[in-house]
Design a protein around this nucleic acid. Structure first.
Length: 503
RNA sequence: GGCGCAUUCGUCUAGAGGCCCAGGACACAGCCCUCUCAAGGCUGAGACACGAGUUCGAAUCUCGUAUGCGCUACCA
């Protein structure tokens, strides 16, 4: 771990509200938050909605819901305000014009009247903007105005020399100034471009560390130049590696990607409803481009805060290992208390079974089943398939494939005999509880000379209708003596029918 | 095309000249445990993109090549 300054940092997450929050964006926000907490500074949420065409009204709510789900509370932001409000750029438009005009007044920017069509002509020839209006006379300007042309404000970038920006992860990055061709700062609709807005706001909001995607590396020198033009100190730049598609090649797509036959969405909202735990997602994402130490990757938020440092972030692009996410989610499920898991499971199971979540939360069956499924699921969504049999009547357990009722190395007749013998035990056993049941069935295994595994299979299928289910004796107990006997009777009947049909 | 960034097991990563014929994790395979399925334990297979340097010594430094990705908008 390389130690850097621990003075309080002001770090902002500045998404543009164009769609649902992406896992890549969440990771950026997570690193922002970790660094702010690590230094005892502030985490700020700022909305960069200067592109009216791409604005998506659902986006803001989704964004805030997603961040809060992960536990990333911000100290200043659009909904809670703060000393530098407003935190939505479209509400700050007057500010940007003012600063752009200051640059013009100081000879560091200029009005440009080039039309869309003229720019298109240049583009068609593969040429960048030719700085044609960099030195307009007042008379020329008046003439263009008279034509009704609207101006944008462009930065008068240095024509020679180089600019070096320091990136906290990669070190110095140097580019020729000549490659920076007077970018637009203020658009003709009066709103700023990203370049102007980010520099003005980062300065005004006293941002000390800029964490953003590496797609911004090429424009970092421009931002550096803008800070210099305004005579403001520049923040520390930290360009985060991109998140790739799980295949390892190409940026993660906006559509679902398939891994091992299962679909994984790039959107956070799908994980909020897909059986994932926020703590697991937090831990998982913290390992993407950063590592706690060489041997350990399961850690708490508090532990991460203590160790996190932007200088330790890897510069390498990463593909999200979704199977590892699932494994980690399972680890977190197993770490929960029974009460916590029941709370978490109730809404999922209730929705799947058409029950009331509030009532189900206090249902004896769910409460007893929770510890039995705890080490068998990786996602909260997987619980229903393991427990649904407990919430239906015996009549609803059918045996479409009665051969499943036959134990390994047993005949149908032998399996039937096993069920009947077991039913006699269940009828009279006291107490009707797992330890006593287990002892009795093991004794039965002895006397009938049938392996425990083979002996129990008919009961498991009889009771749950499935070959894969939670432990048998506990399951019987959840059902109760009468219901257990009813299901065994039904299963016996199914076996008899099978024997009659094949005889 | 130009400019920039990156490159350790299939994947996520440790590694800041000798501790590394490269460590951990997921996934995978085998074994153990076991009432099914899991969980757990043990074992195994599996990587420094390539080529030149620098150095007594390079995964670690330099240069080149290759590959991938990004930017090249009045989008962010």
């Amino acid at each position: 771990m390389m130690a850097t300054s621990t003075s309080p940092a002001r770090v902002r997450f500045a998404p543009s509200p164009t769609g649902f929050l992406h896992l890549g964006g969440l990771r950026t926000a997570l690193f922002d938050w970790l660094y702010a907490r690590h230094t005892g500074g502030q985490f700020i949420l700022r909305i960069e909605d200067t592109d009216q065409k791409r604005y998506n009204p659902e986006s803001l709510a989704d964004l805030m819901r997603s961040l809060r789900w992960l536990g990333l509370e911000w100290d200043e932001g659009p909904d809670i305000g703060g000393p530098h409000a407003p935190y939505i750029q479209s509400e700050r438009r007057a500010l940007y014009r003012q600063y752009a005009e200051w640059l013009v007044a100081h000879g560091k920017a200029y009005f440009c009247y080039t039309t869309e069509a003229e720019l298109e002509e240049l583009r068609a020839k593969g040429l960048p903007y030719d700085r044609r209006h960099r030195h307009l006379t007042p008379a020329q300007r008046t003439a263009f105005e008279a034509e009704g042309r609207t101006a944008v404000i462009r930065f008068a970038a240095p024509l020679s020399g180089t600019t070096t920006v320091h990136d906290a992860i990669r070190g110095d990055i140097t580019v020729e100034n000549a490659t920076i061709v007077d970018p637009v700062l203020l658009k003709s609709d009066g709103l700023p471009t990203y370049h102007l807005a980010v520099v003005v706001d980062d300065h005004l909001m006293e941002i000390t560390h800029v964490l953003r995607g590496e797609e911004w590396i090429p424009s970092a020198p421009l931002h550096q130049l803008l800070f210099e033009a305004f005579e403001w100190p520049a923040p520390v730049f930290v360009h985060l590696p991109v998140i790739l598609d799980p295949s390892g090649k190409g940026k993660m797509s906006k559509r679902k990607t398939v891994v091992d036959g299962r679909e994984f969405s790039p959107y956070v909202r799908d994980y909020m409803t897909g059986g994932y735990l926020p703590d697991a997602m937090f831990n998982f994402l913290a390992n993407m481009g950063w590592s706690f130490d060489a041997e350990r990757e399961i850690f708490t938020r508090e532990e991460a805060i203590v160790r996190f440092d932007v200088a330790d972030i890897s510069p390498k692009a990463t593909a999200l290992p979704f199977t590892k996410l699932e494994w980690m989610n399972g680890v977190y499920i197993r770490q929960m208390t029974t009460e916590q898991l029941t709370d978490a499971l109730a809404p999922y199971v209730a929705a799947d079974l058409g029950l009331d979540a509030g009532e189900l939360r206090h249902d004896r069956r769910l409460i007893e089943l929770t510890p039995l499924v705890q080490e068998r699921i990786k996602l909260l969504t997987e619980a229903t398939a393991l427990v649904d049999w407990a919430f239906v009547s015996s009549a609803q357990i059918t045996y479409p494939d009665p051969t499943q009722l036959i134990g390994k190395k047993l005949t149908a007749a032998e399996s039937l005999a096993v069920l009947e013998a077991g039913a006699r035990i269940i009828q009279s056993i006291e107490p009707f509880a797992p330890p006593a049941l287990e002892a009795a069935f093991r004794a039965l295994s002895e006397t009938m000379q049938i392996k425990v595994g083979s002996l129990l299979t008919p009961f498991r299928v009889a009771i749950t209708g499935k070959t894969v289910a939670p432990p048998l004796f506990e399951s019987m107990h959840v059902l109760g003596r009468e219901e257990t006997l009813a299901r065994i009777a039904n299963a016996s009947e199914a076996l008899r029918a099978l024997m009659a049909a094949t005889a």
